[in-house]
Simulated scan of single mutants.
Amino acid sequence: MSNVITKDYTDYFKGRDWVHMPGFYAQDWRKFMTDHNRVFGSGPFFYTTNTFSRLLFHGDEIDCTGLEFHAAYGAWGSHTIEVVEPVPFSVPTMFSEINSEGEPGFNHLHIFVEDLEEAQDACEFLKIPVITVGYPDMANAIEKAKATGADVEAIKKNAGKASFMVCDMRKELGFAVQLITPRAQALHSAIIGAKDKWDGSAETMFIPLGGK
């Protein structure tokens, strides 16, 4: 994030389409998605474990050694859904701030932005609090890129850059927003593509995405 903000970000969020993927917290991601499938017929679900090289919480560096986001992503009708099980829950993140441990619930919506550093500047300009900024564990990210057919060299070029951030719009609007870059588009496309090919069986409901 820049030390001095010289750009006018008044209209930064205007006209942006939100990604139709609500993000949820659950203590048991597999049970959450199994229950979601039973009620809504959603699926299939890609699952992985996200790890981080750095994590900021309200601007402060957090010791994220051992922190794992066990995550699953799947199709829900013409849209998608994400659930994350953070382990341990006690590490300060958007989940420990917004959700109660052990109680599944909504956490955030997603919006694509071009650049997360610029997005942090925009949030500072607009006085929108940033809860969490995450920097990926590069080995973990490369493994998942290989598993999904994503551009590994592009992943390497973005080493040291944030992979996601969550800003807090609860005071004005009642929800948090996770900002992600277009690099995540491959996952969204894969989810929708898998839905059209899925036979609906429990045996093929969960698909490993790589990473752990």
Rank of each mutant, 00 (worst) to 15 (best):
M1L: 14
M1Y: 11
V4L: 09
K7S: 06
D11Q: 11
R16E: 08
D17W: 03
H20C: 10
P22T: 01
P22F: 04
G23S: 10
D28M: 14
W29T: 00
R30V: 03
T34C: 10
D35I: 02
H36M: 08
H36I: 03
R38D: 10
F40E: 02
G41E: 04
G43P: 02
G43Q: 00
F45R: 01
Y47T: 05
T48M: 03
T49H: 12
N50I: 03
D60I: 01
E61N: 05
E61W: 07
E61C: 06
D63L: 13
T65E: 15
T65D: 15
E68H: 10
F69C: 13
H70Q: 03
G74W: 01
A75Y: 00
I81D: 00
V83S: 06
V83P: 13
V84R: 10
V87I: 04
P88L: 12
P92A: 01
P92G: 03
T93Y: 05
T93F: 10
S96P: 03
S100N: 09
S100C: 05
G102V: 09
L109A: 06
F112V: 01
E114H: 01
D115S: 04
E118Y: 01
A119Q: 02
D121M: 02
A122H: 01
C123F: 04
L126Q: 13
K127S: 01
K127M: 08
I128P: 06
G134H: 00
G134T: 09
P136Q: 06
D137P: 07
A139W: 12
A141K: 13
I142V: 09
K146E: 05
D151S: 08
V152I: 04
A159Q: 15
S163F: 14
F164R: 15
F164H: 12
V166R: 09
C167A: 08
D168V: 03
D168L: 05
K171Y: 14
F175G: 14
A176Y: 07
L179H: 07
I180F: 08
P182T: 09
P182D: 01
R183T: 14
A184F: 11
A186E: 07
S189D: 13
S189L: 10
I192M: 13
D196N: 11
D196S: 07
W198A: 04
G200N: 03
A202H: 10
T204C: 12
I207Q: 08
I207Y: 09
P208T: 00
G210K: 07
G211N: 00
G211W: 07
K212N: 14
